[in-house]
């Protein structure tokens, strides 16, 4: 299949970006990133600068890859990261527009590579249970209802890719932050710090300059791990009740 790519090129955060057009020959069994590999090999053979993009595990779990394809984070397939997107969903002769995540809190580093360290800082603010190595009681000491564990798992399935931010018209990080908060707050082990956790993580999220949530639901639609927007509601509940009862201010 022959494709026309319009790829975002930008030398650095301070340079002006632009779309560059390339023709690529691909086949339907390739993954999207393997198609980009073909483009880059071609550019390198012409002694040109290859398109910078991030990727690693190529099996949809590390959360490194990030491209907006034809206006949609991670492209058209539901519940799929770019690395798991296969060319069979495109047609011969298609034009494909490829852009980076666009959000103030994710500054562009080069081409399609952005800086997502804001997510790390949100976790550092409270996305943990304060237990040192060696302090744990027996794993079966606290039974956890199967459904509770399963819900916590569903929130914890977030891979931290940032598609929710890229999808949101406000560049809000509510889906990411709420998934992280709920994963821990819903488990008995995480309850002790639930109040302080939600306050600190929300405060950090705001500090990073992410936008507010206006319930458009785009984040849930584009999330490659299909994290539910119900997480946001649950976090709001935790957050508001924490403002009523908490004695500690952050």
């Amino acid at each position: 299949m022959k494709l026309k790519l319009k790829v975002w090129r930008q030398k650095s955060a301070n340079d002006k970006g632009y779309f560059e057009e390339h023709m690529v020959t691909a086949n339907e069994h390739m993954s999207f990133l393997e198609m980009i590999d073909v483009l880059n090999e071609e550019l390198i053979s012409q002694k040109k600068d290859p398109v910078a993009f991030e990727h690693d595990c190529r099996e949809g779990i590390c959360g490194t890859c990030n491209m907006v394809i034809n206006g949609r984070p991670h492209g058209p397939s539901k519940g799929t990261t770019v690395c798991q997107l296969h060319m069979r969903v495109f047609n011969d002769g298609d034009t494909i527009v490829i852009e980076p995540w666009r959000a103030k809190s994710f500054p562009i580093i080069k081409d399609l590579v952005v800086d997502r360290s804001a997510f790390d800082r949100i976790i550092q603010a409270g996305g943990y249970i304060s237990v040192n190595t060696g302090q744990a009681p027996d794993g079966n000491a606290i039974p956890i209802e199967q459904a509770v564990a399963a819900d916590a798992f569903d929130s914890a399935a977030c891979i931290g890719c940032g598609a929710c931010v890229a999808a949101c018209p406000n560049a809000s990080a509510m889906l990411f932050t709420s998934a992280k908060v709920n994963h821990l707050n819903s488990l008995p082990q995480g309850k002790t710090e639930a109040t302080i956790r939600v306050q600190k993580m929300v405060a950090q999220m705001d500090l990073e300059g992410f936008g507010n949530c206006s319930n458009t639901g785009a984040c849930e639609v584009e999330c490659p791990k299909e994290i539910s927007i119900a997480n946001i509601a649950a976090m709001n509940r935790d957050y508001f009740s924490s403002m009523v009862g908490s004695e500690e201010s952050v």
């Binding site: 943990y128 249970i129 237990v131 190595t133 060696g134 302090q135 744990a136 009681p137 027996d138 794993g139 079966n140 606290i142 039974p143 956890i144 209802e145 199967q146 564990a149 399963a150 916590a152 798992f153 914890a156 994963h183 821990l184 488990l187 082990q189 995480g190």
Partner: peptide
């Protein structure tokens, strides 16, 4: 396993709530 459970790792569980 104890350490990971304490950190909030959501391991699969049986109906009785045990690992």
């Amino acid at each position: 396993i104890d350490q990971c459970v304490a950190q909030g790792v959501p391991f699969a569980r049986e109906y009785g709530g045990l690992l």
